[in-house]
Design a protein around this nucleic acid. Structure first.
Lengths: 207, 207
DNA sequence: ACCTGAACACCGTTCAAGT
DNA sequence: ACCTGAACACCGTTCAAGT
C-alpha cells in the first residue's frame, strides 16, 4: 500500500547499515498525513506522537517541515524533468507523443502516493518547491504540466489543440489517481492512454 | 467629517444592508489570498492588515476563518447540488448529458475565482466543508464530482466508460480554469464542451 | 549519532471593554 | 453596530544539553 520502498536515506558513513529507520518512518507517516489531511493542517507534533518521539527529534533528520516534503517529491520531479528533456530532443511526431504519454503514465503510476499528495496540496506546493530547479520556481507544477503539453502540440497550435493536449496530460494523472483502487491497473493504463491519445490525435472533426 | 452623529437607524427592516462594506471587502481579500497562497498559509493578520483593521475585527463579521470560506463557497455548492438534483430527475439520454455538461460549464464559468480556490485547497476543504450538507461530508468535492459522473453513464457502465465520463467532467472544470485568461471565452466553452461530449458519446471503438 | 526540554515568535480564537 | 487590546493554547523552529 505504500510506495516509499525506494526512498533510501543515502546516509554517508561507509558500509555500516544505519540501523535507525526513523528517517524513513518519518517520511512514511508524513506522506500519509500530508496527503490525507493536508500539509499545513498536519502538525509536526502529530507526526512525532505517531512515532513516539518529540517534535524536536524530527529536526535531527530534516532541517524543516518543507524539507520532509522535498525528500519524497524530488525523485518524482526529477523523473519528470528527465522526461521533458528527453521529449524536447525528439521529433514532434505521433510516435513521440505516444511515448511521452506512456512514460508519463509509468512515472505517475509508480508514485501514486506522491501524486496524491501533490494534487491535494497545490496551494502549499508553489511555496514549498521554490528551491527546486531555478530561483523563480513559483507555479512549479503548472510549469511542468505546460511543458509536457507543449511537447504534444506544434508551437503554432490552435487553442483547441492546446486545450485538448492539456486534457490529455490531465487524463493520465487524474485517471491514474482517481481510480487507483481498481483491481486491474493494466486495464486502467490502457483506458487512460486511449483517452490521452484520442485527444492528441490530430483528427480535427472527421468522423 | 465632523461629529454630528448620524443616529441613523442602520437597520431598515428585513434584510437590511449594513452600510459598512467591511464584510464584503473581507470576502474579496480572503478569496484572493486563499486562492493564491493557500488557505492555511494565509493568516488572518494578513487579511486584517490589508483592510486596515485588527485581527479581532474579522470575528465581528465571521465566526471563524472557516466561516469566511463557507460564505463564498456555499452559493457555488448549492448550484451544483441543484444541478445534480435536476439531472437525477431526467432520463439518462444523450440530450441530458449534453445539458448537464453545458450547465456545469455555466456554473463553473460564472465562478472561476471560487473554483480556483477549491482546486488549490483540496486538502483543506474536506475538513472545511464538513458542515455543508449531511454530517459525514468528508471528501465533499469528490462526492459531488462522482455524482455528476454517475449521471453521465448507465449504472452498469464499463470501467472505460466511467473513466471517460470522469474525464468529461474534469475537462470542463480544468479547461475553464486553466485557460481562464484567454480572450474568447465563448470559443473556450465550445472547445471544452466538444471534448466533454466526445468523451461521453458512446462510440466504443469505431473510428 | 540520536534525541530531549525549554524557549522563541507566530497562529486562530475569545472576550471584556470601548465608541 | 462595529471594532480594539490583551489573553489563551497551539504552531514551526532553534539550541544547549543529555546519552
Amino acid at each position: 500500500m505504500d510506495d516509499l520502498a525506494d526512498l533510501a536515506p543515502a546516509r554517508p558513513g561507509g558500509a555500516g547499515r544505519p540501523r535507525g529507520d526513523t528517517r524513513e518512518r518519518i517520511q512514511a507517516v508524513a506522506l500519509d498525513l500530508f496527503a490525507e489531511r493536508g500539509y499545513e493542517a498536519t502538525s509536526l507534533r502529530e507526526i512525532a506522537e505517531r512515532l513516539g518521539v518529540t517534535k524536536a527529534a524530527l529536526y535531527y533528520h530534516f532541517k524543516s517541515k518543507e524539507d520532509i516534503v522535498r525528500s519524497f517529491t524530488e525523485d518524482y520531479l526529477g523523473e519528470l524533468d528527465a522526461l521533458l528533456a528527453w521529449g524536447a530532443a525528439q521529433p514532434r511526431s505521433a510516435a513521440t507523443r505516444a511515448e511521452l504519454l506512456t512514460r508519463y503514465g509509468d512515472i505517475v503510476g509508480r508514485r501514486l502516493g506522491v501524486l496524491r499528495f501533490l494534487e491535494q496540496n497545490r496551494a502549499a506546493l508553489d511555496h514549498l518547491l521554490s528551491e527546486h530547479g531555478g530561483p523563480d520556481r513559483k507555479q512549479w507544477l503548472r510549469a511542468q504540466f505546460e511543458a509536457l503539453r507543449d511537447l504534444l502540440v506544434p508551437p503554432d497550435a490552435t487553442l483547441r489543440d492546446q486545450v485538448r493536449a492539456s486534457m490529455a496530460v490531465a487524463s493520465v494523472g487524474i485517471g491514474c489517481m482517481h481510480y487507483h483502487q481498481v483491481a486491474d491497473q493494466a486495464e486502467l493504463r490502457d483506458i487512460v492512454l486511449e483517452i490521452a491519445l484520442d485527444l492528441t490525435g490530430s483528427a480535427p472533426s472527421t468522423p
